[in-house]
Amino acid sequence: MLKELFVNLTILITFNYLFTHLFKERLVHKKDSIYFQAVKGLACGLLGVILIVFGFTYQHSIIDLRHIPIMIAALYGGWVSTAMALVVIAAGRLLITMNTSAIYSVIIICFAAIPSLIVSKRKKVQLKHAFYLMIITNTLISISFYFFIDLHSYQLHLYFWIISITGGMLSLYIIDHETNAHLLFKQYKFQAHFDFLTGVYNRRKFEEITQTLYQQAANTPHFQFALIYMDIDHFKTINDQYGHHEGDQVLKELGLRLKQSIRNTDPAARIGGEEFAVLLPNCTLAKAVQIAERIRGAINDAPIRLTNGEELSITVSLGAAHYPNNKEHPESLPILADQMLYKAKETGRNKVCFSEKKE
């Protein structure tokens, strides 16, 4: 019997790694759609059935760790996941052998799921809460074993408690550790690619995308794209007058309006303190100028509300360049876009400048 419980423990640990890789950050919240909650419950239910298959038989009853998948479903999925897991496990148990012990075991597992559902209402389940939950659940199961299926072997109860506590705590630790590791990796990946303040790409990632676009232009006949450089007018004055905190608020709002003014597939980046850039793949020069004007209007037409409640009107200057209309070599496009941006700032600001001839 110790061998079968150890096999159950091995299966459980293996599943936990697969479970975390399958659902990843969806395990940290329960506000999924009903579909995803049901999928979580189905996965836990199938695990429960596998544990039953590899459990051991004692006086027509199968002893295993099926209550742990129920606990996982409750803590990381909610009541829908728990209900789905219970249905699958109950159906699997009754299909394996239909007898009085099977019916009792279904009743026991449903009864043992109640504490898990109660604990699942907490926003964050800590390991100490999980330990208390395991104690309560194991106590309920042991009492049920003792009185309903006449399982009076103290040695068996001891083995069950040791393997169950070990399996339950290892399961929750692995899921919690792997989920947090995934979220940290996702956070680091975001920080490596995106500007933390505005949510658009950072300069390094933008240059990677630009190099890829250059290669695509070199290898694809008739390929075209545009580059827009944008700079906030008199941004230093804003920082000096309102402080850097309000300046950051301006940058955040500008990044939001910039993303709303372009296609989701158009890479946008913050490439300097108050300077932004946008790449427009498969875009004509006329369309690029139209998009640049849209960006300028989105920022100019509505004031930005600062954190102190004051509204501030700002403007931007933009320079646009196009390949192949303006340059034979796409690598030279940033120089021309920067020249057009400088021209916009020198000739009055709050405007879009571009060249229609090849330079």
Results as ranks from 00 to 15, higher is better:
N282A: 07
L18F: 15
F185M: 12
S164M: 11
T212Y: 09
G319V: 08
A38H: 01
M230F: 08
Y146N: 13
N350D: 02
F185Y: 02
R93W: 12
H157R: 05
F223E: 04
F54M: 09
I271Q: 07
N202T: 02
C110W: 00
M98W: 14
F235D: 12
Y342A: 01
A91K: 07
A217S: 01
A286S: 05
F276Y: 08
D233N: 13
N264D: 14
G243V: 10
V250L: 09
N16S: 14
K205V: 00
I228M: 12
F15A: 12
G272E: 10
M134L: 05
L2Q: 11
E274K: 09
H152M: 12
Y229L: 10
V200Q: 02
H244A: 07
A302R: 11
A90G: 14
G41F: 08
K236V: 08
I114W: 01
T82Q: 04
N202Q: 06
S120A: 11
L285T: 00
F23Y: 08
E178C: 08
K357Y: 08
P303W: 02
T347I: 01
K343C: 11
L318D: 01
N180R: 09
G78A: 05
I174P: 09
K351C: 14
K40M: 04
L227Y: 02
L75A: 12
E253F: 08
G168K: 10
I162L: 10
R305M: 15
F19S: 03
F196M: 15
Q155P: 10
A74S: 07
K24T: 11
L95N: 02
N282L: 11
D231H: 06
Y242P: 15
S61H: 01
A292M: 00
F54I: 11
